[in-house]
Design a binder for these strands. Structure first.
Lengths: 201, 201
DNA sequence: CCAAAATTGGACCTGCAAGTCCAAAACCCG
DNA sequence: CGGGTTTTGGACTTGCAGGTCCAATTTTGG
């Protein structure tokens, strides 16, 4: 079934997903036609429906998964190693740098706003992404607590939830305003707050 | 020009905007057809294009403005009177209650994600909303500083920016997960942090 | 090297939703 | 009341994007 994929076929499929993802990031989900994807990836309509029998919806789902994975990969290796303050700051810098560079071209926006409504599966992908993201942050907080760098009475999960929300909102506001002020404020204030608490313990 | 509106005409126009807004909140921007609006508001195509000559785009813009205004109105009178801790908490409760009730049906999502790309004017509306929102919060922080309830060394604008981002992200996550956990965490942790700082001053 | 299966190209179909048009009805004001 | 204007209804046009189909070509495995 899924085993019916030649090396060449797999390559084409991947090319379509990556190309479509780029196109969508650039111009938004509902501005991208299948024809655009075809042109941009050098494929034909027959190929699109060969690799994605359910058409656009299935393609969007694949793109969503691809983009979601990418979001977390971009934060490595910091995100998985939030064990010292320098790492936290490096993570902070990476986030800001990444989103500043990317500007208005946000994969998440497309995933959440548009794809989410259509494909029920996309919802699950986003939830999965957020869950992994938040878990990684919470894990970081706990490790810092174990070394005494963060006060033990802090609720790691709740803090991670708030920080994640702040990041998402910061990115969202970046999309509207074009500025990273909000994202920076969230990260700086939250991290400062966590550091300040350490001495209290 | 705009004065060529009979009392009846104005009523019809308003009915269209309100009805379209409800429809969009319920089912998402790109799931709502003009025909749906017509059915839901008891109007004809002729009327739609009579009151919104530029068609769907112009209608969406009007809806966006309407929804944006509504967002802030829903937070009154608390948002304009963040002068005591009880008011802050009441504001917090109102926000959570409102978004919990509204669930996945979020006007902002539609405005930002979909409308934003299409109509350049919608972008401006969202920015305006965020600006007013953030300004109101910052004003609240400053007033609390003037009464000594919040530490004077806190950067009101930056704090407001972070809080606003947190709220937006919290709502965004509510859309994906269906839970208000993130929103609550942001509000509680931020407000607690502000209160804790007071004694330091 | 051959048959079966996967891959590819692109013409064609189809449905739908935005937008156009105009004539009928209601309304306003002197 | 009466002429001009606004309001209303709904049939019709149009373009387009997703999806179908199939025949040609390449690849694979034995």
């Amino acid at each position: 079934m899924t085993r019916a994929l030649t090396r060449k076929g797999a390559a084409t499929r991947a090319r379509i997903v990556v190309g479509a993802a780029a196109e969508i990031r650039e111009r938004g989900v509902d501005e991208v036609r299948l024809e655009d994807v075809m042109a941009h990836t050098g494929t034909s309509k027959g190929q699109l429906f060969h690799y994605f029998p359910d058409g656009k919806e299935e393609l969007l789902l694949a793109v969503a998964q691809h983009e979601a994975d990418q979001v977390l990969l971009d934060q490595e290796p910091m995100l998985s190693n939030l064990t010292t303050w320098p790492t936290w700051l490096a993570w902070r810098d990476r986030l800001i740098e990444r989103y500043r560079a990317q500007g208005v071209k946000c994969p998440l926006n497309g995933l959440l706003g548009q794809t989410g409504r259509r494909a029920p599966g996309a919802q699950a992908i986003v939830v999965g992404l957020m869950w992994r993201w938040q878990t990684a942050i919470a894990e970081g907080v706990r490790r810092m607590q174990s070394t005494g760098d963060i006060a033990p009475d802090i609720d790691a999960d709740r803090t991670a939830a708030a920080l994640l929300a702040g990041i998402q909102g910061g990115v969202l506001l970046l999309l509207s305003t074009g500025r990273t002020d909000h994202l920076e404020a969230v990260l700086d204030l939250t991290i400062d707050s966590l550091r300040a608490g350490a001495r209290t313990a």
